[in-house]
């Protein structure tokens, strides 16, 4: 099914494309970001739409989408949480943070695999995944909730309460 892109979104995308006067292909990431921001994830239709928009073979877009964990290929929860997994945060307790969030948000991560790294709560409100180093190693454990950054996260209940 062709993706229905609202005209405002398309205008914003067209504007992004002008940032790449030498090659439209360069706009693959920005276009995908705009689409993901609007639709929550990148599905096959979004890949096809992007390919058509940038006059590329769809595989060239899919190659990019699947490379980057920043592009989700399935619907996340309303609030998508990314907990930093890497060394300094792990030393500061990010695995414990992950466990705690999952417990309090009702997320079961047992089905998580390399290809399917995101777990969603039963009510669809929260989804979670580990992210690699979020570059705030001095204030771990850290996480992103949608686009909001949180550091030294200790109070999980307080965090979840902000996103209700």
């Amino acid at each position: 099914m062709p993706l229905e892109v609202p005209s405002e979104l398309e205008k914003s995308i067209d504007d992004r494309i002008t940032h790449y006067p030498v090659s439209k292909r360069s706009a693959v990431l920005p276009v995908l970001h705009e689409l993901q921001h609007h639709f929550g994830f990148i599905n096959e239709d979004a890949v096809e739409w992007t390919a058509a928009k940038l006059e590329l073979e769809p595989i060239k877009v899919l190659e990019v989408v699947t490379f980057y964990p920043g592009f989700r290929q399935s619907a996340p929860g309303k609030y998508h949480i990314r907990v930093c997994r890497t060394l300094s945060c792990a030393m500061a307790g990010s695995y414990e943070l992950m466990e705690s969030i999952c417990e309090k948000a009702g997320i079961d991560r047992s089905g998580v695999t390399h290809h399917d790294p995101i777990a969603v709560s039963a009510d669809g409100k929260y989804s979670i995944e580990f992210a690699e180093c979020l570059a705030s190693c001095g204030s771990g454990p850290v996480c992103l909730v949608n686009d909001d950054f949180h550091e030294e996260v200790k109070d999980v209940e307080g965090l979840l309460k902000k996103y209700n």
Binding site: E57, P58, K60
Partner: peptide, 21 residues
């Protein structure tokens, strides 16, 4: 006729033809 590509990354990289193509 660029219909082939790599998807995923690292050791999980797979050669793929685009779905539906």
């Amino acid at each position: 006729d660029p219909v082939l590509g790599f998807t995923d990354r690292g050791s999980h990289t797979v050669l793929t033809v685009h779905p539906g193509h």
